[in-house]
Design a protein around this nucleic acid. Structure first.
Length: 828
DNA sequence: CGTAGGCATGGAG
DNA sequence: ACTCCATGCCTAC
């Protein structure tokens, strides 16, 4: 397992993009799938360095030449170089990745896309220029424009006249316009070198039609000679990026990778235009300091306009920040990004700082202490005393606080934008992010709302999945968080994918041509007679359907997809599973993760009312009633849930356990389980006897050492307590006639290694080693005599005992079962 | 003992 | 190797 940055630039999460072992692609690489945005792609076409950073050229894996990631330094090239960026600039081959982004033209299209004679030179010039000089001085623009126009068959006198004119008027706007035209056309043509002219023209016209009608924002700030226009350009670039990334639903990403089609992207752009949120370039000269885009204000034009109206002033968005847990915590200290603090807040020289007045969007004025702490030869800027304001705005960790400025006057304005859940971009089960948030559009709250795909909080939080602190106190987040392990369980082959089995180090790998997709989360159940099945919930009617255990479902699954049961392939068919059974399943099958789904279909209260059957009791009821419930049919045992790892063929102790109750094994049963259990008890008793005799011998030798005797005495007492508990457990087990109970409870608590295999030598050794330490006491004092007198209960009680052992020896708890290690008969 | 202030630490880029 | 910054932790009150 490794992780890479998601190549979806609007996502860019790190830890959410992982390799799936076994998902090897025929191309030789591994599929990478971003859990955040759902992008999946074959990473192998890129070299290892193709990670998104803020700048840099990357090597194309296909041709070995350099391509550009679309960094700040080459925004002009961004449209076609960004992730999904169509093709390698050098070899023009399509890289076959998803989210292929159309070439967006900036500004008006030139009448003749071929008007530049030597596009390569122009392209090179622009690129070089941008690379070498990160600011656009008027002079350099003029040079560029000259160079561009030199390719435009302009007569020398005319060229000189234009130059002179430009120098006189410093017509920056015109320079930009020209440059934009040239860049856009040259960029387009550059990548189309070698393509048939007509094809290029057709594509070009098609793109011209879909070019969004951007409204240019007023350039933000003007102190720098650099870019009255650059922000504008970049904003448009950001717009094109966002419109693409946001508009393109990840549903598409979840299916087979698609190449760009003009129609699709046209629709995409159209759809997204209304709601998209764009990162605005920072005001003033912050480009120099490379303010991270995560801090760029992402207020929409509409919102900005509204804010300006509300405050009856001209508003300049400055920056924004996702509230961290500590920002939103009780301490009341909001850490300010250093660059922002130094750029937009008054300069301070003393650590204690100065009080600073900031008004909120309602005009209410707040006073914070703006200060800094020395930190590693640098400073860490904080706003102190923000708690009242934070509370007033009703924002929490994960939400965004925005900082703007009223011009003229420079009054700072604090606003907020709440991150909310929405399942628009992904199906509900995929939408759930580890942080509990969903992807998709958001509802307006406070000043604005945020779109999480471009919201760095999800980006950041997902980048560091280990950082669980941010929203840990958010119950919903905890409810919704699923782990990567769980996510891996949801990976399914692309519908069109046919695997080729290859052996790598004696392990079988399935190789696919297509990256995986997220599959539907299902519940695996098994009946006590061993029959297994899975349950899936219809995305439309929310009814549960029983399906064969081998069924692999795509992310979107409905009753009509139930090809296994013609009677239950319609939403009008009755639910396959009773409310009682459902609750029982939710209770045992990792209820947390299904909590929301369960909530949707909250079953009647009387099921869970105190004193009435619920949870285990419901299971027991099911076990007894069997036929009366749902489609259990001939099975006389109730459905219990097992971890999905316990698939058919699994021979671990969980899967091979004999049934209790009616299906109990005979006392003289010689089956593997019973013989194993008997053998283990024999070992246990022998060990106990041996230890007792050792103790007695020691005590007799050390009679003059009362302290030692006391220790032993206390130890014995402890053993008695544990034995008492064990007995209690056993009695409980007997009362319920359900050998699964303790198992399930412990599995639920995560303390039981469901993969411990009694037929696996290491496991047994580990268990028995464990017994020689503290666990041995747990077991040694069990009332075996009584238990041995009731051999019918052997398997069930053994379960209890094994679980005690597993508790100690179960380092492998929650780890996936390792293939090929489950069928090794134990030698003794 | 609880809280707040201030600095240190370490992960991530 | 360096910076940034989220948050841990120590100390004073």
């Amino acid at each position: 397992m490794g992780s890479k940055n998601c190549m979806n630039k609007a996502c860019r999460t790190t830890t959410s993009s992982e390799w799936k072992k076994g998902w090897r692609l025929k191309s030789g690489g591994f599929a990478t799938l971003c859990f955040n945005c759902g992008s999946s792609y074959d990473n192998s076409v890129f070299c290892e360095t193709f990670h998104f950073k803020e700048s840099g050229w990357r090597e194309c894996r296909i041709c070995g030449k350099l391509i550009h990631c679309g960094c700040t330094a080459s925004r002009y090239l961004y449209e076609y170089m960004d992730f999904g960026g169509i093709s390698c600039l050098s070899c023009a081959k399509n890289l076959e990745i998803q989210h292929v982004q159309p070439v967006q033209t900036i500004g008006d299209l030139p009448s003749d896309p071929f008007m530049a004679n030597d596009l390569k030179d122009v392209h090179t010039l622009v690129t070089e220029h941008i690379r070498n000089d990160d600011k656009f001085s008027t002079k350099s623009l003029l040079q560029l424009t000259k160079a561009v126009e030199a390719n435009d068959e302009i007569s020398k006198p005319e060229q000189l006249r234009r130059e002179e004119s430009m120098l006189k008027t410093v017509d920056t706007q015109k320079c930009v316009s020209n440059l934009r035209q040239q860049c856009s056309s040259s960029a387009f043509l550059k990548q189309d070198i070698g393509r048939p002219e007509q094809e290029v023209k057709n594509a070009y016209e098609s793109l011209a039609l879909q070019s969004p009608n951007f409204s240019l924002a007023t350039p933000l700030g003007s102190s720098s000679s650099v870019l009255p226009f650059r922000g504008e350009i970049i904003e448009r670039v950001e717009q094109s990026k966002c419109s693409f990334q946001h508009g393109k639903t990840t549903k598409q990403a979840l299916s087979k990778p698609v190449k760009h089609s003009p129609a699709a992207s046209s629709e995409t752009n159209k759809d997204s235009t209304a709601q998209k949120r764009f990162a605005r370039p920072p005001a003033d000269g912050l480009f120099r300091t490379q303010l991270l885009p995560r801090y760029w204000p992402k207020i929409t034009d509409q919102e900005l306009q509204q804010l300006s109206v509300d405050l009856k002033s001209s508003i300049v968005p400055l920056f924004e920040k996702i509230l961290s847990a500590s920002d939103a915590g009780r301490i009341g200290r909001l850490v300010l990004p250093k660059a922002c603090a130094e750029a937009y807040f008054p300069p301070i020289n003393q650590s204690e700082g100065i009080p600073i007045r900031i008004q909120d969007i309602k005009g209410k004025e707040w006073t914070f202490q703006f200060r800094f702490w020395p930190n590693n030869n640098s400073r860490m800027y904080v706003l102190e005393g923000v708690t009242p304001c934070i509370q007033n705005m009703q924002v929490q960790a994960g939400d965004v606080v925005t900082f703007s400025r009223i011009d003229p006057g420079g009054q700072l304005v604090i606003g907020c934008r709440k991150a909310t859940n929405n399942g628009d971009l992904l199906d509900s089960h995929v939408t759930i992010l580890p942080n509990g948030n969903s992807l998709g559009e958001t509802s307006f709250s406070g000043v604005t709302e945020t779109l999480l795909p471009s919201n760095p909080v999800s980006e950041k939080k997902l980048r560091n999945i280990k950082n669980k602190r941010l929203l840990m106190h958010n119950d919903d987040a905890v409810e919704l968080r699923i782990t990567w392990e769980e996510a891996q369980e949801l990976l399914r082959p692309s519908p069109a994918a046919k695997p080729t089995i290859v052996l790598v180090e004696d392990l079988e790998f399935e190789e696919f041509d297509e990256p995986p997709i997220f599959g539907k989360r299902t519940i695996f159940t098994s009946r006590l007679l061993g029959e297994q099945e899975q349950l899936s919930q219809c995305d439309i009617c929310s009814k549960w359907r029983r399906l064969p255990v081998h069924a692999l479902l795509s992310a979107k699954w409905t009753c009509s997809d139930n090809i296994w049961d013609s009677n239950r392939c319609s939403c009008s068919a009755a639910d396959d599973i009773s409310p009682q059974e459902l609750e029982a399943l939710f209770t045992y099958n990792n209820g947390v993760n299904y909590k929301l789904e369960f909530k949707k279909r909250r079953i009647s209260d009387n099921v869970s009312k105190e004193g009435e059957p619920s949870g285990l009791d419901a299971l027991a009821t099911i076990a007894v009633l069997g036929d009366n419930i749902g489609d259990i049919g001939e099975s006389s045992a109730g459905a219990t849930t097992r971890h999905p790892r316990h698939r058919p063929g699994c021979s671990c102790i969980v899967c091979i356990q004999p049934p209790s109750g009616k299906g109990k094994h005979e006392p003289a049963c010689k089956c593997n389980v019973c013989s194993t259990i008997k053998r283990r008890f024999k070992t246990i008793i022998m060990r106990k006897k041996k230890r007792q005799s050792e103790r007695e011998a020691e005590l007799s030798q050390e009679k003059d050492k009362p302290a030692l005797a006391k220790i032993y005495f206390e130890k014995e007492e402890e053993e008695e307590d544990i034995a008492g508990n064990a007995l209690k457990n056993m009695n409980h087990h007997q009362e319920n006639e359900d050998g699964n109970q303790l198992h399930l409870e412990e599995a639920k608590k995560g303390t039981l290694d469901l993969n411990c295999d009694p037929y696996r030598e290491e496991d047994v050794i580990a268990e028995e080693d464990g017994m020689s330490s503290t666990t041995s006491m747990n077991v040694a004092t069990l009332p075996f005599d009584m238990f041995l007198g009731k051999p019918n209960d052997l398997p069930s009680l053994e379960e209890s005992v094994l679980k005690k052992e597993d508790n100690v020896a179960g380092e492998g708890a929650m780890l996936p079962a390792v293939p090929g290690q489950e069928n090794n008969p134990e030698d003794e």
